[in-house]
Design a protein around this nucleic acid. Structure first.
Lengths: 220, 220, 220, 220
DNA sequence: CATGAATGAGCTTTCATTCAT
DNA sequence: GATGAATGAAAGCTCATTCAT
């Protein structure tokens, strides 16, 4: 956790430092992120950095916490209060908000993805301990509810499905960045295209890839 | 590509160096892997390392190539000649073989996973260019065939589905290691448990998570 | 350019480091100069060196700039304001001041000579771009003026003569060091001897080596 | 001196190795010349290199000896038997032949120049001891004769003039390469231009830069 | 609270040379 | 005579972190 020195900083300065650090982590990843570059870009003294944060890991942990909070603001009402909604509707909202967040805060999304992808990295693991549990609990409750509601079939391995849903979330954002950077898709239509993809994808999560014979309506 | 000096080495010595390097990459990842540690553990001179390989990236590329080849040996007959088989059968074999490989060669599986997870890392991206395309083509052909055979419904975004299937493969191996290391599951029963998971998972890919009402048989 | 860290150093410490580095370059030349030796001799940490300078080239560039400035202090009033003086008088002052500088600052003179002698070396060339042009412009103006004044005959290739005059300056300093180190001349009389040489040499530049027949006075 | 092993090599192979080594030294200078690169480019084994030569210095010494011999072939009859010719005629032939050699054997000329320019470098100094003395003796005899013949005035410091004449020779070749690489002059006319320069230059050596009043013919 | 100089372990890589085969 | 694997010292440079001011 950042030291009080940092938290007492004027909002603007604090935000500036956070933004610079975020960009550094997004571009280089944790291992190659350089505190030298961060302080240079932020225009602060090296010593000040260590008055603000314990160490490199501390900044990242702080940023990830922040990203988590920022993401909440992208959540639709449905997600904030999922009770009573169809599981797949909530999922759709979740992927949609993930995409919206990536669109508005690409660096944040990239850092979040790095984090979720590198859970075995000691540093990420250390941070993970604190923050990922929340997500798991959320998914867990969601799945429990979904099964009780009859949305999801009960014969699933919940731990694995959660693992997979998180992975797929990451994969979606990844896909988004690859399309954006690869220029594979007209940027103007990107969001529409991606929401189409999300829809197809949701449909897949719901009904699988298997071809359904005629006369066998799927249950929506 | 490793230099001839390396390829001409006695099998035993070569294998030893490979194993040491693989362990280093598996444990620390590319950025934190240390050539100093590798040569110390391998018992070779630092200069020798550079007689064998161009640089750090070169070793990793070599190891990944090797892993790719080793994986082939874990492929079942079904995978080696997928034509004529049901898509989901092939997928099941694929995930099963991935798991078997991870079981027999954990370091190799870990390195392969790091590789697949870090496609944006410049070094992995450089290696990726050469080797991942193969996997994509394989999946592409598989999907085409599956749709023609009526195994898979035609209204999917193939690029995204491929992206996702690869991600899921990685996710499965990840899950395997987490269970093993976390001690979540009795190791003696691990494989059975995991194949159960694979089955459930396959079932999920096939039919989705949605609860099916009675009397609506799925198409297998 | 050295970093501010270096420029902000206490004069004494800064001068010490400069002197140590200068000695290293003078003795070993750029390629064989060792930063390890410099930091050891200067009694600073290796990291500090890189807080002071960008890299090896940066130190040398700094030293050469410094040498250039130091040389100015050896310039006679005639050189500082050459207008109105006979060209050969200015040249004589130039060679004299070069010699005086070499006498007072042998390491500086040696490094300057290495620099002027190795213009094709990539590192010297990079430094050269910034600093040698000045010298060429100076010579150019001098020659123009000399021709207008009727001191120098107009049928010369100015570019080549400049090239040559610079070379000869270097050659003179070289000669000085060879005599000093070779012990060819009694050191006590060295300066007198060398100024004699400069005179003869100037005479040569002025009138050439050719024997003049009696009754044909040269124009001074 | 190269070992017998080298001298006994088939002419073609020996010449190939020499050419490769020469190119390496010409491009990188002694310090940055790499034996690794030489053996790679020459297609010989590292061990073979050390069967041929004592060490890096040995190759260079051999090449410089060779260059010296090759230069002789560019000497005109006048130079080979200078007795009885006017000193300045011999000088003109010398500069002309230097230029011709540089034209036909640029690498050789470059290496020779590096050698002559870096007499303080320990390695060059070691080689110098053996080979430069010859040149000095040649010049010495030339000057003695020239003074006796009345070509050159007797009031010169012979040691210094020799030093200078050598320097100027180097400077001329340098100038040649700068013009060639800089593209300053139309290559088709380069040689003519340079011989003009040589002429002007010779005139300078003979009569100096000073403007001569009318009616005072110089002695040619 | 800010500063920025100091640190030295660590990094990857290159090198000329040796020597057993 | 040819080979090429082995060597380890040394290179230039970066890093996160400390601490006196």
């Amino acid at each position: 956790m950042p030291k009080d020195t940092f938290l007492n900083l004027p909002d603007e300065k604090r935000a500036h430092i956070e933004q610079v650090a975020l960009a550094e982590f997004a571009e280089h990843g944790y291992d190659n992120a350089s505190i030298n570059r961060i302080v240079a870009a932020a225009g602060i003294a090296k010593g000040s950095f260590y008055q603000y944060f314990e160490d490199k890991q501390d900044v990242l942990a702080h940023l990830i916490t922040q990203i988590g909070q920022a993401k909440i603001e992208f959540m639709s009402p449905v997600m904030q209060n999922p009770a009573g909604h169809d599981f797949f509707t909530v999922m759709r909202e979740m992927y949609r908000s993930g995409l919206a967040f990536a669109r508005m805060n690409p660096h944040g999304a990239q850092v979040a993805n790095q984090f979720l992808q590198n859970r075995t990295h000691p540093v990420y693991a250390a941070i993970y301990a604190d923050s990922l549990e929340t997500a798991k609990v959320f998914y867990h409750n969601m799945l429990d509810m979904a099964i009780r509601q009859g949305d999801v079939r009960p014969d699933i391995d919940r731990r694995f499905v959660i693992h997979m849903l998180i992975t797929l979330h990451v994969s979606l954002i990844e896909y988004y960045f690859e399309e954006v950077q690869g220029g594979a898709i007209d940027v103007a239509q990107l969001d529409d295209n991606l929401m189409d993809t999300v829809s197809t994808f949701l449909d897949f999560i719901q009904h699988g890839l298997a071809y359904k014979e005629e006369g066998v309506p799927t249950h929506d």
